[in-house]
Structure formats: C-alpha cells, structure tokens
C-alpha cells in the first residue's frame, strides 16, 4: 500500500441532497446479511465437528472449552492490538498534521509502511528473538507495528481533507486551534479514521492466527494442531472460526462507520 497523504478538494459544502448510491445500497445489504451468514456457517461447522465421530486425539482439541478458550485468546489479541493502534496512531496522526510537526510526517509514514510491507510472521519472530518474551505481548506488539499504517494514514488524510475554509472560518470567529481540531477537524475525519481502523482490525484478526508461533494461543493453534496431527476436522474448525471472526470484525467496523460518523459530513 502506498502512503496517500494529500486528497485535494474532497469536501465542498453542497446544497444538493445526496442520493444513496449503488455502493451504499450494496453496503447496507452486506451489513445485514454478512453476520447472519457468518453465524450460520460457523455454527454449522462447529456443531458438525463436535457431533461427529471423534478419535481420542480429536477429542483432546475439539471440545467446547478448548475452542472457546482459543477463540477468547484470539479476541483478546485483536482487542489489545486495536486499542494500542488507536492509542498510538490517532494521536500520532493528529500530531503529524500540525504545522510544527508536518515535516516529520514522511518519516513516520515510511516507518509504518515498512511495518506493513514486512511479512507479519517475520516481524513476530524477529520481535520474539530480540525480546525473548512469549505469549500475548509477544504477538500484540509486533502486530501493532504491522497494523499501524491504515489508521495512521487515514487519520492524517482525514484531517488534511477537511476543507481549509472551514478551519479558516473556525479560527476567524474565535475558536482556538485546539477547539477547531476537536470540534471541526477530528469529527470530520472520523469516517476515514474508522475506515482505517476497520482495515487494521481485519489485518489484526488475520495475523493473530500466527500467535501460536510465540506461544500466544489463538485459533492458529487449532490449525497448527490439525496440520501436525493430520486431523482435518480440527483444521476445518480453526480455519472457519478465524475466517468467521474476521468477517464479524469487519461487520462491526462497518456498523461503527455507519453510526459514529458525524451527520452532514461527507
């Protein structure tokens, strides 16, 4: 992915009522059917696996408590990663659009680009070798590095694409620089920030399947066990759950974009 920093003239106030486009209609359709499809398919696969004839090895992993605990670990990794990404990328993105720090933007974007361009597994393993820690943090910290870029870039673009005349108007009627940032620039950047976060979340869920390499648990463990012991049913459950979780997270992101975006903003 390339770092798009400038989007010229995106928002112009317009008196025209915007009609729902084809894409927004397909988006609405997707928001409605995606979770239903995911829940139905995942439930079907899990029920099939749990109720089929299992040998001793399979029973070891394919039981509800184990699956739930691995799913829980996976979700915890995802939540920790996203919270850290928001906590780091949003303030950093804001700071890098301030006039005093603008010159630093290319530096940080380059670092974030490298983070994303590098293979996630490589980043995780390197971090493990370097730090020696295992478990949740051994996977969360490299994944933050890996998923930082979409949120950072979208925060910056979101703020930069706010019509300059709105900032001029805000300052001109006596709002402080901070007031304009909090009441005008950030709210109008929210849609793009959320879109970035949605991408980051999906990346995080996907790459969290690699957590088992550094003892971080997660659904990757199911896939790994299934592969090593040649238990296809275990692999199926692990893979389907990972995919289902990614789609659900994507769906939640879509819901957030719909409900948290300010009215009247593009």
């Amino acid at each position: 992915m390339t770092a798009v920093v400038e989007l010229p003239g995106v928002s112009k106030t317009s008196a025209v009522e915007r009609r729902p486009s084809v894409t927004s209609r397909s988006e609405r359709f997707r928001l409605f059917f995606q979770p239903i499809a995911v829940v139905v398919i995942v439930a079907a696969v899990v029920i099939w696996a749990l109720t089929s004839d299992l040998n001793a090895n399979e029973r070891e992993t394919l039981n509800l408590p184990t699956i739930m605990s691995l799913l829980g670990q996976h979700i915890v990794i995802t939540i920790v990663v996203s919270l850290l990404v928001v906590a780091i990328a949003v303030p950093l993105g804001i700071a890098l659009t301030r006039p005093a720090l603008k010159w630093l933007a290319p530096v940080f974007l380059a670092i974030a680009n490298i983070g994303q361009a590098a293979p996630a597994l490589g980043v995780i393993v390197l971090f493990f070798l370097w730090s020696g820690i295992e478990g949740l943090w051994a996977v969360a910290i490299p994944l933050v590095f890996y998923t930082l870029l979409p949120v950072l870039r979208n925060t910056m673009v979101g703020i930069q694409q706010v019509d300059r005349s709105l900032i001029d108007a805000g300052r001109g009627i006596g709002m402080s620089a901070g007031g304009v940032l909090m009441r005008v620039e950030l709210p109008l950047a929210v849609p793009l920030i959320l879109a970035g976060l949605r991408t980051a979340l999906v990346l995080a869920v996907g790459t969290a399947t690699l957590a088992f390499f550094v003892n971080g648990g997660g659904l990757g463990e199911l896939i790994d066990t299934g592969y090593k012991l040649q238990l296809n049913s275990v692999m199926y459950v692990g893979a389907v759950l990972a995919i289902g979780l990614a789609l659900l997270v994507d769906w939640l992101g879509g819901i957030a974009e719909r409900w948290l975006a300010p009215k009247g903003a593009e």
Binding site: D168, G170, G174, P262, A265
Partner: peptide, 16 residues
C-alpha cells in the same frame, strides 16, 4: 476574534 464578526465566501458553515 470573538468580538469581530467574520463572514467568508461559501459561508464556511460547519457541515456537521
């Protein structure tokens, strides 16, 4: 600036 009215082209109204 809070004591000086300011009106600009295209009004500069906050869209949200």
């Amino acid at each position: 600036r809070r004591t000086i009215g300011y009106a600009i082209q295209q009004a500069g109204l906050f869209p949200h």
